[in-house]
Design a protein around this nucleic acid. Structure first.
Lengths: 352, 352
DNA sequence: ATGGATTACGGGCACGTGCCCGTAAAGGTA
DNA sequence: TACCTTTACGGGCACGTGCCCGTAATCCAT
C-alpha cells in the first residue's frame, strides 16, 4: 500500500525548532527545564502542524500502568441487573488491557449503606487514576466526589446522576423522559375510564430515581390531557408475599385498574402476582432486561420493558475515563442513553 | 502502580526455546526458514504460555498500512438514510487510523446498477485488504463475492444479507422479525373491523428486503389470529405526486383502513399524504430515523419508526474487518441488530 | 576569579515486534 | 578437497515516544 499520510512526530518538531526530541517531550508533558522562549517556539510549531501523538508508541514506551476502579452494586438475589454494566466494564477492560490499562471492580451491597462507604474507602486507598461509580447513596457519593476532586481524580457516574457534582461524565438515562415514555406506552391502548397504577417496590426511602420517573410519567398525563385516574403505591418489602399482599389490597380497593407501571426492574414480582391472581388483562410495563422480566414478556404478562442499555453504560463509562487519561481527548459531560422499548417480538435481538 | 501482569513476549519465548527472536518471529508468521523440529518446539511454548502478541508494538514496527474499502449507496435526494452508516464508518476510521489503518469509501447510485458495478470494479482494483459492502444488487454482489474469495479478501455485508455467500460477517437487521415487530405495534390498539394497508414504495423490482419484511408482517397476523384484512400496494414511483395518486385510489376503494405500514424509509411521503388528506387518525408505521420521518413523528402523523442502528452497522462492519486483519480475532458471522422502536417520546435520545 | 548551585538542553536507551541482512552449517557436485 | 547452493538461524536496526542521565551554559555568592 502507498504511504499516503505520513504523520510527523516529535522528531520533526525537534528538527523544525532546532532542538532535541527530549526538549519537545518536556514541552509536550509540560515539565520544567525549558526556557520560555523555546517553549513558545515549540508550542507554535505543535499548534501549526496540529501534532497528534502516536498513542501506540506512547503506551509502548511508557511503562506506567494506568489503573481504573469501578464501584457497582453486587448482583443481588433479587435481580441480576448489575451484571450487565459489569459485562460492559469487562468488555472495555479487555479492549484497554493491551494499552496498559488495568481495571479493578469494587462491589457493594445495594441494601447496605455502610458497604457502599466501605468500598469507596477501599477504592480511594487504591490510588487509581480514574473512577467509575454508580452513585447509589447520595450523601456518601458527595463525600466521594469531594475526595476525588481534592486528589484530582476524574470520576464518572453511570445509571443515575447527581447533576451538581463535577463528574467527568454522566452516562445513563434521562429518568424523567423515561417515565414519560412509559406513560405513552401504557396509555396507548388504554380505555379512558380505566385507572392506572404506579407501583414502587424498593427498600430505599430516599429514592431519587423513582421520583424522577414518576414525575415524568405524570407529566405525560398532564401534557396529553389523559383522562385516567392514577393510583400509586409504595411497597417497602421486596419479597413476593409482601408485594402480593399490598397489591391484593390495592386491586380490592380499585376494581377498574387497566394498567400498571412499575418504576424499576422488580416488575417481574408484579407480573407473578397478576398471573397468579388471573389479572393478565391488566397492561404491565416496567424496567430492565433481566431474565425474569423477559420470561413474563414472553408469556404476554408484561407488555413492554423499558431499558437504558446498562451494558453499554458500563462500557462507555470506562471508555470515557480511557479517553481522558490515555488519549487525552475531551468527553461529553451529559450522555443520555437511548430509552429502548423491548417487547415480546424484538427482545431476542436486544443488546443490553 | 504495581506491575502486576507482566506479559511475556517473543523474547521470553526465544529464551525458553534457546533460539533468537527472529526465529520465533518466523514461526509466528509462518514464514520459511525454520526446521520442523524447532518450529514444533516453539509452537509448543507459544501454546503453553498462551502468547498474545502486543498489537501496539506490532502495528508500530510494521510500516505496512492496512487499507479497507467501504461500498455504500450515496445519499440521495429522496433520503439521507445512508449518511448514518457512513458516519459509523468514519467513526471507526478515526479510531483505527492511529493503528495504521486507512479507509476509502466508494459511493454508488442506488437507482443505477451500472454505478454499483463500476464502484465494485474500482474498489477491487484498489488492492484493499478488506471490504465492507451494502449488497444492493444481488447478481453484481455475487460476482463481487466470487472475486473477493478468489483473492482471499474478507468482506462484510451490512444492512441486508445474502446468506449463501461466505461473507466474513453480516451486520444488519433480521428483516422478517422486523416486519413482525411492525405488525405488533400496528395492531396493538387497532380495532378488529379495520383494514391494514401495506405500502411498498420503491423503484427496484426485485426487492428482497421488502419481501422479507412483508412476510414477517403477515406472519404476525397468522400467529396471533389477527382478524384485520390486509390490503397491499406497490408504488414504483417515489415522488409525492405519484404516491398521492396511488394512495388516493386505495383509500377510495377501502373506506375502513385503520393503519398503514410502509416497508422502508419513504414513510414520510405517506405521512405527508395522510396529513394533506386529513387522515391522520390512521396509524402509521415505517422505517428509519431520518429527519423527514422524525418531523412527522413529532407531529403525531407517524406513530412509530422502526430502526436498525445504521450508524452502528457501519461502525461494527469496519470493526469486524479490523478484528480479522489487525487483531486476528474471530468474528461472529451473523450479527443481527436490535429492532429499535422510536416514538415521539424517546426519539431525542435515539442513537442511530 | 573561583566554586557551587541552578537552568536548559542533548544523547541515548528502552518498550515489543517486524524484517533485512549476514553467516555458519549442511548438503551437493566436480 | 575445493567450490557452490540451500537451509537454518542470529544480529541488529527501525517504528515513535518516554524518560533517565550527563553536561554545557548561566547565575550568584564569596
Amino acid at each position: 500500500m502507498e504511504k499516503e499520510n505520513e504523520l510527523f512526530g516529535v522528531k520533526e518538531i525537534a528538527r523544525r525548532a532546532n532542538v532535541s526530541t527530549a526538549t519537545v517531550d518536556r514541552v509536550l508533558h509540560n515539565r520544567t527545564g525549558v526556557s520560555e522562549k523555546t517553549k513558545a517556539k515549540i508550542n507554535a510549531i505543535i499548534k501549526e502542524m496540529d501534532y497528534q501523538p502516536n498513542i501506540l508508541a506512547s503506551r509502548l514506551a511508557s511503562k506506567k500502568i494506568i489503573s481504573l476502579a469501578a464501584l457497582l452494586p453486587d448482583v443481588s438475589e433479587e435481580t441480576d441487573f448489575w451484571s450487565a454494566p459489569l459485562g460492559g466494564i469487562r468488555r472495555a477492560e479487555a479492549e484497554m488491557r493491551q494499552y496498559g490499562v488495568q481495571v479493578q471492580v469494587f462491589l457493594f451491597d445495594l441494601n447496605n449503606k455502610d458497604s457502599f462507604a466501605g468500598q469507596i474507602r477501599l477504592a480511594l486507598e487504591g490510588g487509581f487514576h480514574g473512577m467509575l461509580i454508580s452513585p447509589s447513596f447520595i450523601e456518601e457519593t458527595r463525600k466521594f466526589a469531594a475526595e476525588c476532586a481534592r486528589r484530582k481524580i476524574p470520576y464518572v457516574f453511570i445509571d443515575s446522576d447527581i447533576p451538581d457534582l463535577h463528574s467527568l461524565s454522566y452516562i445513563g438515562p434521562h429518568l424523567r423522559k423515561s417515565g414519560y415514555v412509559g406513560a405513552k406506552l401504557l396509555t396507548y391502548r388504554l380505555e379512558a375510564e380505566k385507572k392506572v397504577l404506579i407501583i414502587n417496590i424498593s427498600k430505599e426511602i430516599d429514592n431519587f430515581n423513582y421520583l424522577e420517573i414518576e414525575d415524568g410519567f405524570r407529566a405525560y398525563f398532564n401534557d396529553n390531557n389523559q383522562p385516567n385516574e392514577i393510583v400509586r403505591i409504595d411497597i417497602r418489602e421486596t419479597d413476593y408475599q409482601s408485594v402480593a399482599r399490598h397489591l391484593t389490597y390495592v386491586f380490592h380497593l380499585n376494581k377498574d385498574i387497566g394498567a400498571a407501571f412499575v418504576t424499576n426492574s422488580r416488575v417481574h414480582t408484579v407480573a407473578s402476582f397478576l398471573k397468579n391472581s388471573h389479572r393478565t388483562h391488566v397492561s404491565l410495563i416496567g424496567y430492565d432486561f433481566v431474565r425474569e422480566n423477559v420470561d413474563y414478556l414472553e408469556n404476554n404478562v408484561i407488555d413492554f420493558l423499558i431499558c437504558h442499555r446498562p451494558d453499554d453504560q458500563g462500557y462507555r463509562g470506562m471508555m470515557a475515563l480511557y479517553q481522558t487519561l490515555v488519549v487525552n481527548a475531551p468527553v461529553t459531560k451529559q450522555n443520555y442513553m437511548p430509552i429502548d422499548i423491548v417487547t415480546k417480538e424484538n427482545y431476542e435481538f436486544y443488546q443490553n
